[in-house]
Simulated assay, not measured.
Amino acid sequence: MKKRKIELVVLSDIHLGTFGCHAKELVNYLSSIKPKILVLNGDIIDIWQFRKSYFPSTHLKVIQKIINLASKGTKVYYITGNHDEMLRKFSDLTMGNISLVDKVVLELGDKKAWIFHGDVFDASVQHSKWIAKLGGVGYDYLILTNRLVNWLLFKIGTEPYSFSKKIKSSVKKAVKHISDFEQTATELGIEKKYDYVICGHIHEPKIIKKENKNGSIMYLNSGDWVENLTALEYNYKRWKLYRYKDTNYTEDEDLFEMEDMISSQLIASLIFTEKK
């Protein structure tokens, strides 16, 4: 396979170790690119919901692909998020081409990009962490249920349906939360005189120019690999929002993946019941 050469790729919210993670698709994407710089913008490994009973080989392959890219010359920045915040005690650690940081500023030609996860803007994460963690577990099972439903819809030839996107678009608080998040990030970016502000965290992929009385900035969000399967790509002074489309999709692969997730969930439930 001929790999696409890209100056910069930004990924976030992969959530390795959860049922909702589309690791197989991400492995395919990573196998298709050769970036000079790879930024992993938080929530890569979901330490909040980590289960010993569930870490499939495809999730491990994602890590192997990242290490392989670094060994072949790609500069990798791992920016910590709230779901992998335990790694923040090791911030500013560098091993070869891999650096663990809390944020990073990159010079892209004559412009500057300010990149960070974005959980610092989320009051529920900062002040009510147990609520955020509980919500994370509920979200993971919602995504698992959604994937099962979509598998059944695929079998009968019906278009897939997203529970979480429907909830986000219909609940005014969720819409306001996303809007407030973007506004806060852009206002700070303009104040600091950056050209780009790049976040993750809210699972809402976007590239949009924002303005206020003090100036303008490009706001970018890399989305996630749970619902949207998106990445930000920068090449030839232009940004692109990449959306994964699996052209080699087969029913057998989907069936195997669903069976793997369901069996892992049953094992986890049995272990939890036994402990109680």
Rank of each mutant, 00 (worst) to 15 (best):
Q49C: 11
G223E: 12
L148W: 05
D13Y: 00
V39I: 15
K240H: 12
K240T: 15
S31Y: 05
Y249V: 07
V137C: 04
D195C: 02
L16V: 01
I207R: 05
M95N: 09
R238C: 04
F163Q: 04
K168Q: 13
W114S: 05
L16K: 01
K165R: 14
E227T: 03
I190V: 01
L144G: 10
Y244F: 15
N248L: 11
A123V: 14
S53C: 04
C199S: 08
E227R: 07
G81H: 03
Y219D: 01
F90P: 08
F154H: 03
D13N: 06
T74K: 03
S264T: 05
G81F: 02
K172H: 07
K210W: 11
I262F: 15
K193Y: 09
K245F: 05
K237N: 15
I190H: 01
K173T: 14
E182Y: 02
T273I: 13
V39L: 09
F272D: 12
K5F: 09
M86L: 15
S124P: 01
S31R: 14
G96N: 00
S99V: 00
F19K: 13
K209T: 15
Y219C: 09
A231F: 05
H59F: 10
F154L: 06
Y236S: 13
Q49K: 11
V175P: 05
K34G: 09
E257C: 04
G189D: 01
V149S: 04
L108G: 10
Y77P: 08
I190E: 00
V27E: 02
L188S: 00
W48I: 00
V137Q: 10
K129V: 02
T58W: 00
D46K: 06
K176W: 07
W130E: 13
V175T: 10
Y54M: 03
I202V: 14
E191I: 02
V62L: 00
A185E: 06
N41F: 03
T184G: 05
F90T: 05
F50S: 03
V197T: 12
F181Q: 06
I14P: 03
P35S: 10
K206M: 14
V125Y: 01
L40N: 06
A174D: 11
I44D: 03
E85S: 11
D110W: 11
C199R: 15
E233L: 09
S91C: 03
Y54W: 14
V10R: 06
V175N: 06
T186M: 02
W48E: 11
T145I: 09
D180L: 09
L11K: 04
K193V: 00
A174E: 14
S12W: 01
K165L: 10
L241A: 10
V27H: 07
T158M: 13
H117E: 00
E257I: 11
N248I: 03
L100C: 03
L30F: 09
E227I: 14
F154W: 00
S216W: 11
I271P: 01
F90Q: 10
G96S: 08
N68C: 07
F272I: 03
D260N: 08
M95G: 06
M1Y: 07
S179W: 01
E187H: 10
H15I: 04
I37F: 02
H177M: 08
P205Q: 08
